[in-house]
Amino acid sequence: MVIRVEHELHQRRRGRNVGVGLLLVGFVAVIFGLTVVKVLNLTDIREFESFDHVARPQLIPDEGASE
């Protein structure tokens, strides 16, 4: 017998599946929100950016800036 897409099991566990789905969406929202808040609250871009094995001239302190 071919398994039906909408089996009784799916119906019975609908609440549980919807709950897990909502929890996952909530988890993504929390991580996304946290990332946005953390990045927007940085006072210095160098806390966020780094060289990442690539030369980034904008991160090099200006020569003679302290003189």
Partner: peptide
């Protein structure tokens, strides 16, 4: 998995989100 084996899953005492 066959439909018969799915039917064998017990319907009593299954946990919900609550």
């Amino acid at each position: 998995m066959t439909d018969a084996s799915l039917q064998s899953v017990t319907t009593t005492g299954e946990a919900g989100m609550g």
